Amino acid sequence: MNLFILTGAGVSAESGLGVFRGTGAALWKRYDPMQLATPEAFMRDPALVHEFYNARRRNLIAAASNAAHIALARLEAGLAQRGDSMTLVTQNIDDLHERAGSKRVIHMHGELLKARCASCGAVRDCREELSTDSRCGCDGALRPHVVWFGETPLYMEEIYAALERADRFVAIGTSGAVYPAAGFVREARARGLRCCEVNLEPSENAAQFDERRYGRASEIVPSWVEEILAR
């Protein structure tokens, strides 16, 4: 078995991290992403952008992995023990998969606990708050190491190569609204893969999945993982 798993904000919501889309208190319903999450916004008002991401970083540092993260780490280890494999690609910018024990996570939208130089592109760990005075060794301005609107997601060649090797595609906690990730299920179906959606509620592209399970991630992900490991 070679699983390709895509996770989204729904995996981390029960850890107290706000989702960017969806119902309720979704962040992009309360804030204008064009003022906070574009290269142009950072050039126009870097202090405002830093203030927003500093708050997200503080929230993340105080959070903890939940049962869904832990179950996926257990799945990775269990598959490896029997000679199977798993690729975990996340749209999330948090590190809760890693804290739960996942060994290899591909962060296609970047990582909040890292900073990137806007000039030379160097990336470094960052748990402190950033400001307009935060500088790289080359004296370039530091920005959050996250993919903003209008920017290309990271590791796309690696992701598509992993999708070609997979024999099953699973999307967990995703909205099905953000591309290119929302198009992965279509790519998987074109390759003849069985596709499963595990989510709180149907995503925007739910009809493209062969199997669908709905409920709280902390409940349905562990039960789904146990089924996979029992096969």
Rank of each mutant, 00 (worst) to 15 (best):
G192Y: 11
L163K: 11
H50N: 01
E76P: 03
Q81G: 08
L72D: 03
V89A: 09
I70S: 11
S65V: 05
L60Y: 04
N54W: 13
L113S: 01
I159D: 00
S119D: 12
A100T: 14
W148D: 03
H109Q: 13
E98T: 13
A118T: 07
I70D: 05
F52A: 04
G121Y: 03
G192T: 08
R104K: 15
R99G: 08
N54D: 11
Y160R: 10
F52Q: 05
D167N: 15
D84E: 15
I61F: 09
G78W: 04
V49K: 06
S131C: 07
V147P: 03
A100K: 04
L96Y: 04
C138D: 07
G137W: 09
H109S: 13
A63L: 00
D125H: 12
L96H: 09
S85F: 05
A171G: 03
S65T: 06
R135W: 07
P153W: 07
D139E: 15
R104E: 09
L96V: 11
D95V: 13
H50D: 05
H97P: 04
L79Q: 14
A80H: 14
E76T: 06
A177W: 08
H50Y: 12
D95R: 12
G192A: 11
S175T: 07
W148I: 03
F184N: 01
A71H: 10
R74L: 09
R186L: 15
A67N: 08
Q81N: 08
A161E: 13
T152E: 14
N59H: 11
Y160K: 03
R56T: 09
E151Y: 02
A68N: 04
L72N: 04
R189F: 10
R74W: 06
D133K: 05
I93W: 06
A64F: 14
Y155R: 15
L163Q: 01
V89Q: 12
V89T: 06
A62R: 14
I61G: 01
F184E: 00
L142K: 09
A166I: 05
V185F: 03
I61N: 10
L163C: 02
Y160D: 00
H69S: 02
I106P: 00
L60S: 01
R168M: 12
E164F: 08
A118G: 13
A100R: 04
C120V: 13
A141G: 05
S102K: 07
A63Y: 11
G176I: 02
P180D: 01
V147N: 05
R116C: 03
D95S: 12
A177P: 01
S119K: 15
E51G: 12
R143K: 15
A68S: 12
I70A: 13
A100Y: 09
P180C: 10
L142R: 08
V123L: 05
L96R: 04
L88A: 04
L113P: 00
V123I: 15
M86N: 00
G173E: 02
V49Y: 09
R168Q: 13
N92I: 14
I61P: 01
R191S: 12
A181V: 02
L130Y: 07
W148T: 11
E129W: 06
R189T: 14
S85D: 11
H97T: 09
G110H: 15
R82L: 01
V170D: 06
E98D: 07
V147M: 02
G140N: 07
H50G: 00
